[in-house]
Design a binder for these strands. Structure first.
Lengths: 216, 216, 216, 216
DNA sequence: AATGAATGAGATTTCATTCAT
DNA sequence: AATGAATGAAATCTCATTCAT
């Protein structure tokens, strides 16, 4: 594995290939603005200004603001799934399935911080039908980890009390990274990967670490 | 400890005593609406309707919408700190400091799901000065865990590579609970406590759990 | 009967009594503008300007532009029915029922030219539910004439081939008056009344006037 | 006269021959949409969609929306005049001039209901200059009836108090037909013709039908 | 402390029209 | 002759906020 950026880039080509230039720039501007200020707090005017176009022109590419949000989120989820599939063919990926998933997840989420942020924060701003559609793909993604945990647990490699709860715990932990990670900060991406990978591994390790002393 | 709800209730008395009846109802309505739809997506009119009052009446209690948000978040953080202090006097709390913190955090966050959700989601909607104020108390709270980890690590009880990163990982993991927890669902609060407590303990346990096979 | 204006004024008091001042002025401005330019061609801004208020203020009184149109049309139809009922108690009205209806109709429609115009022109701009509601009262009004014709025809006083078609013919003829009538023009209202009353009477008279020479 | 539809068809050839295929389809779509929803409520986009073309393409055929309206109305009036002239050569037309006009008017207006509707409803949406042009041809058409009435009145065949008012009354009555007539309804066109023709004849008949008892 | 009405700004979206291709 | 994208204006309606009552 020579370059970290590969994880997300592979998938990108697929979904961005057909769009025309302005539509791509609208998507990019909306992505950045939504991530920074939130969907509800960003106006179509702001997006248009960022693109360098009149507000009305946006509607040549996205029928409504809601469609723009949905497009961003759906594209993100599709890219995520596509990247995961590519990752399966990546010879350099860790052989342990949990390590593989965690490594992939961290890398992808650091490379696509804005998309990830939106995908988590703006779910409630999706209209019901769009929500269902996005939520479905989200669950499908989380199911990958759940299955890894369940299989590993059955094989005695991991010890998890509830694979779905554990999934949520791990995903929450990992997905939180981009909220504080800053490019060029004191921690490099590989360092972060190491720290989190270690924590995740141990958290599902098949052993007693402390003497539990009752929790409620 | 007879009742789980004690954790937050103790602190509540402090902040609920201030303000008259309408102000309290405004706070309650705003809390619920902000949590569900987001600060930017909720209008003062909606809040007024929920309270059963005309929009203008809100301004007798909060000078601006932003002040209302700040009030909710600041009150929440103050309550959280107050509850933490009360918890220190609670004889029934786990003796291990990490167990104690985790137990407290889970309980408090399940009892105050809406406040917690807002505190995480609406930070970016705070005006700079308000942001600084809230952020400061947030960091103070996270510092509690960081210190526990640092001390425990120094004492050899835990093994953490970076106490601040580990803090964020644990907080993210725990704080994610209310996003999927549903009252009356298949998992009881104590069960959730047990699962998460176990994972946290192991994640910082001073041992090798697997043979690390390299993660990038 | 001392004053022609009585016909419509009686009813007016009923429906205008509750509204506050601005709402009344909005109604008046909208009435005049809709009548002159058509509902679709008039903007809320124009109405607001005519009232001397900001556009947003209109929404304190009418929830949507459509509601404003519906209000105007429904009020008109209700006033029309109320005026007709009052007319029944008017000692000075013609004793013949057809004469009475025609006289009433002409007078009312000349006094309320704008309302009448809108009621005819803007039916297609009503949303389906509103349309049904207005249409119902319109048919009830036309039914008055139909019944007069049917009864008179049965009694041999009139000769009509189809009471409902005849109703439409007469209503169309009479309702056309305000489209060309101009206050202060060469024809006085009483003159117009006389001309139309004469035509209507004769058009349903029980006799052969010409030798019909085949019409297709 | 074998077929009622002849009245309008004869004239049609004249105006349909001009313009290429798309222009004709634009006219047809605009005609139908304007008639149903009103000029102001129909957008160029809707027309383009109905034609199956992009909005910009419309401007290859009509320089502005207003020109499209004017074209429809002017074409209609020209067709109407042309049809009237053809009708003069129709051997099967009634010999009495009033009968002839009424028969022609009803037939033409039932065959060209949409054009007629627009011609009446959209006059106010014409820009001043266009209005004058259309209005002139309209008055010329109405003058045909006025002259028939004046001549017949002078000859003692009809009794009309004011030929121009009577013209308006008759035109309004007849022109109202297409607003309620529905193809395939309970009344056939010939039946309608008979009813209206009878009413018109009687309405201008030289006799007293009732003892007028004063009308205000 | 609450109301009802207003403001001034701004939201999303649509419009007629233009123009390079 | 048609497209696809753009413009600049304007549409309806909502917003946070103010204020006389």
């Amino acid at each position: 594995m020579t370059d970290t950026s590969t994880v997300a880039d592979t998938a990108a080509k697929t979904s961005e290939s057909k769009g025309n230039k302005t539509a791509r720039r609208v998507r990019a501007a909306a992505l950045s603005l939504f991530a920074r200020h939130g969907y509800a707090a960003v106006s179509m005017r702001q997006i248009a200004t960022a693109v360098g176009v009149q507000p009305g022109a946006l509607y040549n590419h996205f029928p409504t603001k809601q469609d723009l949000l949905k497009d961003l989120m759906l594209t993100h989820m599709q890219d995520l799934h596509a990247a995961w599939r590519s990752w399966q063919d990546d010879a350099a990926r860790p052989s342990d399935p949990l390590d593989s998933f965690v490594t992939f997840h961290i890398r992808y989420h650091l490379e696509r911080a804005e998309e990830v942020f939106i995908a988590y924060m703006e779910l409630r701003n999706l209209e019901p039908e769009n929500f269902r559609e996005i939520e479905e793909t989200r669950q499908k993604y989380e199911a990958i980890l759940t299955e890894i945990l369940a299989a590993g647990s059955a094989a005695g490699r991991y010890e998890v009390k509830d694979a779905r709860v554990t999934t949520r715990a791990i995903i929450a932990m990992l997905t939180g990274i981009p909220t504080w990670y800053r490019e060029g900060g004191s921690l490099s991406r590989p360092t972060i990967e190491t720290i989190y990978l270690d924590m995740v591994r141990k958290s599902v390790a098949p052993m007693r670490c402390h003497t539990p002393e009752g929790g409620g």
